[in-house]
Nucleic acid binder design. Sequence first.
RNA 1: CCGGGCGUAGCGCAGUCUGGUAGCGCGACGGUUUUGGGUACCGUAGGUCGGGAGUUCGAAUCUCUCCGCCCGGACCA
Length: 460
Amino acid sequence: MPLRRARRRLKGPENMRLSRYLLPILKETPSEASIVSHQLMLRAGMIKQEAAGLYAWLPFGYKVLRRIEQIVHEEQQRAGALPMLMPTIQPAELWRESGRYDAYGPEMLRVRDRHERDMLYGPTNEEMITDIFRKTVTSYRDLPKILYHIQWKFRDEIRPRFGVMRAREFLMKDAYSFDLTKEDAIHSYNRMLVSYIRTFERMGLTAVPMRADTGPIGGDHSHEFLVLAETGESEVFLDRAVTELNLGDADIDFDDQAHVAGIVEKWTSPYARTDETHDQSVFEAETPEERRLTARGIEVGHIFYFGTKYSEPLKAMVTGPDGGSTPVEMGSYGIGPSRLVGAIIEACHDEAGIIWPEAVTPFHAGIVNLKQGDSKADAACETIYTALRKAGLDPLYDDREERAGAKFASMDLIGLPWRVTVGPRGLKNGVVELTERRGGASEEMTPEEAVARLSSVYLN
RNA sequence: CCGGGCGUAGCGCAGUCUGGUAGCGCGACGGUUUUGGGUACCGUAGGUCGGGAGUUCGAAUCUCUCCGCCCGGACCA
């Protein structure tokens, strides 16, 4: 019955059975990986390395990436930014105009098209977005604007390392703000800062905005967001108070300058700096000893205001209310979704494997059939699987002909937050087992109760 | 880019010093085992020993050369 089989294969949910999924789990740690997130991503079959700093995202890893992207999209738009998409390949022309074509160095991958025109694989998009702006916006009445896209970038790092944490090709959300005055530009900056707080909080991370070096521009309008993780690349010094702040579901009016500035003030006034800008005497003066925290962090976002650095050379001018023409005030705001996948694992794992935060988990729950082929166990798994899908959840059903131990070990490795364990022994009493990956607490309940419990965890 | 290391089966490795025609574990596949935390046993398949050149009767092993990857540093989101 080839036709029937083909049709059956096309049904979406069928793909979420492990026997039909592509999840190349590794028992041993590949020698190419040295840090835990890289090791776990390879072992859990999330990525495959194609060359130094270049990775293919396999279905399981890609799912996580998409969930992170989705949160970023939602929070960017909530803060008033407009989604768009710019190409990966850019003409060198624009970069000559800004002066960065020569300044950038060999980190920029340069290519030539068939007409011998100089092109490049974009490492960032300030020039292009400024070009788009200058050709489409001419009046102060059209301001403010914040535009963003999520696109692959390439920086030809001398020495890529740490898996997706420092790859040559990486996914980046970059937003660009355009305002008439510096004061307005700072409001745009604040919008993004607050948006970032919520973005990382939603992902289940403790990410702290830290004052960053603004370079030649000066001022204090540049912050790096660092996820706290024991294995972080840089040492950070902070007031414990900032880790205890919580934005939650607070209703934020992003157009209300004072309101947004107030939140920024609350999050950025406690001391928080990386080793690059750290000043021990300031730290000690500003922070009581019991609140001083020294930790490690991974940079996952960077925002800065840079005024007219690009609008002047590229002549992105707007006509003001007085009829005069002034270069637009700009800022740019980056988040690295592909890097975040690694950062989240660095922050959320144990000896057995990954522990996904519920907000970004690739599957909401795993169903483990302890005795594949047992008609009662098979039927119960099918029922739970279907019920979870009907409830709007995305389960992964381990229907492989494997021994229980192997299934448990796989589930722990890939880190789904919840596991429904189904076996003949429990079914005799009408129960299955619901286990939380974090902490490992287990509870017996009927299949219906398990479905209801998972629904309430995710859908509230 | 500097310094160090590695490249042998899908993965982890031994064999290289002292040249004799490739092995172990895991995985895969076929059986048996029906087993609630990577079970045990039997069997099978799978390798241009990173590429090229050279020395030699003979090269995974020695020489030259190219390539790739990893680690530390510098650099960087």
